[in-house]
Amino acid sequence: MSVYQIEHAIDYTYDKPVTFAPHQLRLRPRSNLHQSVTKFALTISPTPQKLVEAVDLDGNDSIVAWFDNNPTPQLQIQIQATVTTHLVDPFNYLLAPWAASLPLDYPLSMSSQLQPYLAGYLARSIDPIAAEIAAEIWTTVDGNTLAFLTQLNQRIYHNCTYSLRQTGAALPPSSVWKNRSGSCRDLATLFIEVCRAVGLAGRFVSGYEAGAETDDRHLHAWAEIYLPGAGWRGYDPTHGLVVADGHIAIASSPFPAHTTPVEGTLRTIGMVAAAMSYRLLIQKA
């Protein structure tokens, strides 16, 4: 068990005063068996007229901020949180015997629920290069499910270079593998796509890599795979790790875009130049 204190600030500045449409914020870490939030505070400037808390379609905590029509040249969002992580041993589970070999064939009742987690990232069809990687690893491990996940995690980690990319959608899996390079969200999307090629349901997770000893912090992303008997289990191909108590999840979804920490538009008409900066401090209590 580990306890972390988090301070995360995101600042947007504009070249002229603007007004805001409602903004959806996914910045509150989730609470479940793997982690619990004991403190959370949100500060927004300019102060919103109204804040509405909700649980979104994917089960994530969401806060929608409604603003007045007074123009302002900046938007500042800051959270402070204390989170306790509980997943000390990520292998403490019993995999259902029928799920030990690939391809995975979920029971009909389960597969209908998991359909969004089994479709391809683009055009709902599996990327052919991801399918090739899946077939090669599948052959190497003789269809063993857990060995497949371990080999895939290590293959991406050892063959792809991490590159920081603060904005933009996750790149197509084939592009990431061809270039052997990507951001954490690109590498996570590649991992998920390869898993889906052999019938493993996967979802995208945004959060913090709290266990790393560094002052150079960034919002992080990884994958979670649904393993019958074990539930959702995390894999971090950026670092070749199985997710344990050093990761803090904020939001998850079958679609990476649905985990964006701040989502919203401007009401202001016309061209506006914007810049974004952030500060992230994570300390172990």
Rank of each mutant, 00 (worst) to 15 (best):
L122C: 08
L146A: 06
L122F: 12
T265E: 15
L149P: 12
Y162L: 06
D142H: 09
P29M: 03
R124H: 14
T85A: 09
A251T: 03
P22Y: 09
Y278R: 11
T150E: 14
A188I: 03
E224L: 01
S112T: 15
R279T: 14
V141N: 01
Q74K: 07
G231P: 10
T19R: 13
L118D: 15
H34G: 10
Y4Q: 04
E209M: 01
V205F: 01
T268Q: 04
Q35S: 05
P73A: 09
H34K: 11
L190R: 08
A65N: 09
P261Y: 13
A134P: 01
S31P: 11
S2H: 11
G168P: 09
M110Y: 08
H34E: 15
N32G: 04
A135Q: 15
Y278G: 06
R185I: 00
W177L: 15
Q283W: 00
L102D: 13
Q80A: 13
K39T: 10
E213F: 05
I126Y: 00
A273G: 06
H8T: 05
P71M: 06
G234T: 04
H239W: 10
S252L: 00
A21Y: 14
A100M: 14
Q78G: 03
I79A: 10
I225S: 08
A249L: 01
D61V: 02
A21I: 02
L200K: 11
H23L: 13
S112N: 14
I225H: 11
S253G: 06
S36R: 15
P29C: 07
Q49F: 03
E224Y: 02
F40D: 13
S181N: 13
S109I: 06
P71I: 03
G240A: 02
H258R: 15
D11G: 06
S62H: 03
R124Q: 15
L280M: 14
N159K: 05
K39M: 11
H258V: 04
L42H: 13
S45T: 04
A99Q: 12
P228H: 05
Y4C: 11
L149I: 03
D186I: 03
P97Q: 10
V64Q: 12
L51N: 06
R217N: 14
D68Q: 07
L94P: 00
G199P: 12
M271P: 00
V141R: 02
L75K: 02
T139L: 15
V64Y: 01
L27V: 12
F204D: 02
W98L: 00
H220D: 10
H218T: 10
A119C: 08
H86I: 00
D216H: 02
A54N: 07
N179S: 14
R267T: 14
H23V: 09
E224Q: 04
D11M: 11
W232L: 00
P71F: 07
P254L: 02
A188N: 01
A134Q: 10
T85F: 05
D58I: 00
I133K: 14
Q24D: 14
I44N: 07
R217D: 11
A147T: 08
Q80H: 12
D15M: 09
D61F: 06
L122N: 12
R155W: 12
